[in-house]
Design a protein around this nucleic acid. Structure first.
Lengths: 238, 238
DNA sequence: CCTCTCCACTCGTCCGCACAAGTGGTTGAG
DNA sequence: CTCAACCACTTGTGCGGACGAGTGGAGAGG
């Protein structure tokens, strides 16, 4: 009678094995019961056991060796949590005291190049300055082609509480697909140095946000004082 | 007679379909032939076709809809090709003219901290300087605990042609599992400036290589002159 | 005309079986 | 004692069949 949505059997088998690994019953390095044994114990077909084991192997829980057996590796570690300065900047909400400039200008040469538009195409510039403990911790400048910004609040001097990405998605259904970032160390330009209050080396990040078709939605420049920022990145080696 | 190592059939089926997608025979949005049709055309069992299609779906080539069919999505875009300065440094072969120093020293404080060993533990230092068009394009320093390096050629002043990673794997079966990188912009230290021939801002990368158990195998410092380096990174947004 | 049922078609899952191929220990011939 | 053949075990791949469930169109009934 009950409408139980039983998950597929191979998923149930996976769960059983995962639980045994997490409980320590199967310790890292141990050999798992053979496929035949699991078939008998769990009363399923070998197809099912094999599918479960192969999926677990793909997810990194176990390792399979032809002719030897399957061996426990442990709970797979979460994927490389890479820092994405461009993405987090586009998602972070703006606040009134950080937003220092919203203007409409003809695109300067280097910005036009990033956006893939003609020089002097009208673009909206939004600049924001983040502070930590009184010190400027980043200067973020966003350029959005007027064509993209039209009909949104991007050209208004009020802070966008939800962040640029959410706003573009909600108002114009524009989807972020991928981001190209270029990062380098350099001396700040004159106006950057002024905002930062120092001319010590900075980490400069240039990011371009593309839509699914590959067109540039907006470009971004982040200036991070070197003394305050370390970008950390942990990744697994294949 | 010929010892042909035929790839498994499901892989052959995948290849056929991938080629048809790339040639345009199956265009994006098109419905693929049904499993039954493919079974007849390719003269394989349904198990094989299903496995091929499910793998293609996981890789993003196609999309499968229960009750409707399988549909072409197109060649999957390559995953974020992130630059991994630490990894490439550990894999790159050394040459006689780039290797400038191989010594054995007690670990200074900051290195001991990176490696997770006691201060003054003996470590091998290997330093290499890469040049491009006469200019120094990077200074790379590697610290390896003596305990790790013993029995290898890491303490010898000869260049390791195959790179450090390959050497450690081949000689001592030590596996790289993951790398932690920290990146920042700063002024070069005095001796770095001397090697670089300038005191312009540099990109400093600190990398720690861990084995599967989480222990540090070696630590690394890369100094990249800001004027010569831009790290580019393209990633998909979820 | 509209609506509901039915049916042919799709993919999702599962089974039992078969054989190939890799591994490691045992055994027997030399 | 040595070594090769053998065997018992493992995983890898493949087949045919079966049933379930989702989809969409054709056709019967209103």
């Amino acid at each position: 009678m009950s409408m139980d949505f039983a998950p597929p059997k191979y998923a149930q088998v996976m769960r059983v094995i995962q639980e045994r690994i997490e409980s320590g019953e199967y310790a890292p390095g141990d050999m798992l019961p053979s496929e035949t044994q699991l078939v008998r114990e769990l009363a399923v077909g070998r197809t099912t056991v094999v599918r479960a084991l192969q999926t677990l192997a793909m997810q990194g829980w176990i390792e399979r060796e032809h002719g030897r057996g399957s061996f426990v590796k442990g709970r797979p570690e979460s994927e490389a949590e890479t820092v994405r300065p461009g993405l987090s900047a586009a998602e972070q909400g703006e606040t009134a005291d950080s937003l220092v400039e919203v203007t409409r200008v003809p695109a300067p040469r280097h910005v036009a190049k990033l956006l893939g538009v003609a020089e002097r195409t009208p673009v909206i510039v939004r600049r924001r300055v983040a502070r930590q403990a009184g010190l400027v911790s980043s200067v973020e400048t966003v350029w959005i082609p007027l064509e993209i910004a039209v009909g949104t609040d991007l050209d208004k001097p009020e802070p966008l509480r939800g962040g640029i990405r959410r706003h573009l998605q909600a108002v114009k259904h524009l989807r972020f697909d991928r981001i190209t970032e270029r990062l380098s160390a350099r001396k700040p330009t004159k106006d950057e140095a002024e905002l930062l209050g120092s001319s010590n080396p900075v980490l400069g990040v240039t990011a371009i946000v593309h839509d699914p078709a590959g067109a540039a939605l907006l470009a971004m420049s982040l200036v991070l004082p070197g003394s305050l920022h370390e970008l950390e990145d942990v990744y697994k080696v294949r």
